[in-house]
Design a protein around this nucleic acid. Structure first.
Lengths: 289, 289
DNA sequence: TCCATCATTCATTCCAAGTGAATACTGACC
DNA sequence: GGTCAGTATTCACTTGGAATGAATGATGGA
């Protein structure tokens, strides 16, 4: 069974004549006859009564006609659904590093979902290297990372600039300069983490030594700092989110420069309305600030 | 777009590999590649990411896959729906003369509907010549008539034997023999009507003259007879239906033989489960009496 | 690094879809 | 009632597109 046959059958059924159908289908009547006979042979059922001029659909033909219409309508719908110029729809898989995921991204996602309800957003968090790998292997369509990735297969744009805040327990001694960090326990995300790298560079440049403990969770890091066990360097968004009621103090240093969070995505294809809409929204959002 | 392409696409999408799909489809890999590329060209969209070995479905491909599954499932369903060996379903168009329609047929139809709920029964009444014409021109699938039709394109079987009853108003003089009819007004269905023909033959044989008025409605005929305006010859079923409360008297004469009501249908094809089931039920019904 | 495996390209083969003339038939019209 | 326009169908033929098989390039694992 082929769609060409089904189209022919539908045309003949609607027009009630092989002759009229043949002009509508831009082919010769004998061809229409042959292909419909082939269809009947495959279904092992007569689709039309033949007597005198014209054809008359059989009950089985009537039943088949309803299916034919459904099938042809579905193919048209499928064509429209994958049209690259159509409205964004289908699945869109976005990833982000933890800090963006818990602070800046959620408003973005809700806004996007409100504007494009037909897009089925899927979301996951990971380290920047995991995310880049996911994008490269088509497990993700795009991601927010805090490093400036430069790969030939990736495009990127600024998402927002994130200030870093050194946090400590309010009950601990205040940190007025880098020297005050000497010997303190530091809680940071495991490598590779650009914030951790920024902090390490700063300490190295000032020849300050302090042990860094790896913790892969902002919640746990904040908990440790709040308990007075040590300090950490976190994005301002995260600090603001946890600040109240945790007894935290934040210190900003001009040497700890703001770190740019970027949205990255594959630059092949370009026939993905949902992704285009997402990058567009990010660019607009960024431009508006 | 063709079903062969859609099947190939689905296979490749499910197996994630042209090589595996080609063995599943019993063809050569290059063919799979070519046809999927043609499909992508027609849709103007990439269905798969190509990088390294294996294929990875694109978001557009994901969307198209859901349609592909639906379309293929529908074609299978259509095939099953028209299977001549399958359960009766679809439309079944039955006709009957008025007398059967109002008395003997309704229990038959309700029984059939109960047993084959998937069959969509369509029903109409008409004269036997109209009904035969409707069947010949495929506007009906079968009909009940009161004459023994012998056409090369029709099969027939006994439905039931209908006794005829001469009816008169209870307030009128009783009719003891054919002579009592002389001069009375007679109400009958218009020609061609086998009951009318039977009555006319009886009167002619006995050289009784009586004017026959044509009325194409049992309800009206009964009304006229009930009002004492004249007499009529009706099937016993109709008489019994209207008997109570209408002040009617029925007279049976052995010269007015029972008339056989028969079910007729086209004898071509034979690939129509719903019709087969109906004739089967009629034969069983008849055999049981 | 080599090698097995994969997708793809290309020239070729082959089959089924399409063609066009001939035929038989029907229904309408004079 | 006979003619004729219009119908579906059959058949031999052509053709376009699908299928093939070998060659190529690229990839990932050993």
């Amino acid at each position: 069974m082929e769609l060409a046959q089904i189209r022919m059958f539908k045309t003949v059924a609607n027009l009630g004549s092989v002759a009229q159908a043949s002009v509508a289908l831009h082919c010769v009547p004998s061809n229409v006859t042959a292909r419909i006979k082939a269809l009947e042979a495959e279904l092992k059922v007569s689709l039309f009564y033949r007597q005198g001029r014209g054809l008359c659909i059989t009950p089985a033909g009537e039943v088949f006609l309803t299916y034919a219409e459904k099938i042809l309508a579905l193919t048209e719908e499928a064509k429209r659904a994958v049209d690259p110029t159509s409205e964004p729809s289908g699945p869109l898989r976005i990833g982000a590093i933890e800090s963006s995921a818990t602070s800046r991204l959620p408003p973005m996602l809700t806004k996007f979902h409100a504007q494009y309800p037909n897009v089925e957003l899927q979301f996951k968090t990971g380290t920047w290297s995991q995310l880049v790998d996911d994008i490269q292997h088509h497990r993700l369509d795009g991601a927010i990372v805090a490093v400036n990735i430069d790969r030939p297969f990736l495009d990127n744009t600024t998402f927002f600039n994130e200030d870093l805040v050194l946090i400590s327990s309010a009950s601990a001694d205040p940190i007025k300069s880098v020297k005050d960090i000497e010997g303190k326990a530091i809680f940071m995300w495991p490598e590779p983490c650009p914030y951790r790298a920024a902090l390490a560079t700063w300490l190295n440049q000032n020849k300050v030594k302090a042990p860094i403990t790896s913790i892969a969770s902002y919640g746990t890091i904040i908990g440790c700092v709040s308990a007075g066990s040590g300090i950490s360097l976190v994005p301002k968004g995260v600090y603001e989110q946890y600040q109240s009621g945790m007894g935290l103090v934040g210190y900003e240093f001009e040497e700890l420069v703001t770190i740019e969070n970027r949205f990255i995505w594959r630059n092949d294809g370009g026939q993905f309305p949902a992704l285009d809409a997402f990058t567009q929204m990010i660019k607009q959002n960024n431009h508006g600030e």
